[in-house]
Amino acid sequence: MTRAAALALLVAAPVLGSPVAAETSAAHPEARPFDESVSDALYAQELEQAIAQLEPGRRVLAVFGANWCHDSRALAGWLTSPGFEPLLDAHFEVVFIDVGEPQEGDGRNLDLAARFGVTGIEGTPNLLVIDSKGTLVNTPESAKGWRNAASRSEEAVYAIIASYAGEAE
């Protein structure tokens, strides 16, 4: 899903009753973009397409999470918030991928993360930064280090995401 499509769903969600509806909390916005009804094959296709269509200097932010997860909703909320829009529009394609409940042994799409060297996922969310060559930019450890996303400030999340902005290739 392109950033524009994600934002369109976010805006339309309250009207449509979609699970992408934004919520507001005192500390952070929340969004629910992880769709359990989307097939694993479609998630794989969306990720591959996002990588293949990257323009020079852009990267994919692949967010592996779940709507049941407070931290996944928080990270998704920041990534769909107006304050992040200029950064994301200039440097990233955002793809949200539902992973089910990996900590309960009921994970899904974990093979997609494993293709980029991120294995042993036991919680959510996970943030993979992927360049146009299909290479993981961040480390597997940093990709898995977002389980406290709801307790991070907007400034902290923004700074980390900005640090992954690519240079012209």
Rank of each mutant, 00 (worst) to 15 (best):
G77A: 08
T119Q: 11
G120A: 03
S142H: 09
D89N: 14
D111G: 11
P125M: 01
V95H: 02
G77M: 05
G105L: 10
L110S: 07
N109S: 07
T80M: 08
Q103D: 12
D131I: 06
G134Y: 08
N138P: 10
L88P: 00
R152F: 02
D98K: 10
K144V: 00
G145Y: 09
L136K: 02
A90M: 04
H91Y: 10
S81G: 11
G107H: 09
W146C: 02
S132C: 12
L110Y: 05
S132T: 03
G100H: 08
K133D: 15
P125C: 04
A113M: 08
N126F: 05
R115E: 11
E122K: 15
I97L: 10
G100F: 09
P102F: 11
I97Y: 05
W78E: 08
S151H: 13
F92N: 00
D131M: 13
D131K: 12
P140C: 04
A114C: 10
G134H: 07
D89C: 06
L79M: 05
K133V: 07
F96V: 06
L128R: 00
E85G: 05
N138M: 09
W146Y: 13
L128K: 01
T119L: 12
D98Q: 12
G77H: 06
V137C: 14
G120H: 13
N138L: 09
P86S: 08
G123K: 01
S151C: 11
S142A: 12
D106W: 09
E122P: 00
G134A: 08
G100R: 09
F96I: 07
L136G: 05
G100E: 14
S153E: 12
W146K: 00
V94S: 03
H91S: 15
G107A: 03
V129D: 04
E122Y: 05
E141Q: 13
E101Y: 15
S81F: 01
V95Q: 03
L112I: 06
L87Q: 08
E141A: 14
L88Y: 06
A90G: 06
G134L: 12
L128E: 01
P82K: 07
V129P: 01
G107K: 10
G83L: 02
T80F: 01
P102N: 14
E101Q: 15
T135G: 06
I121V: 08
D131G: 11
L136T: 02
A114N: 13
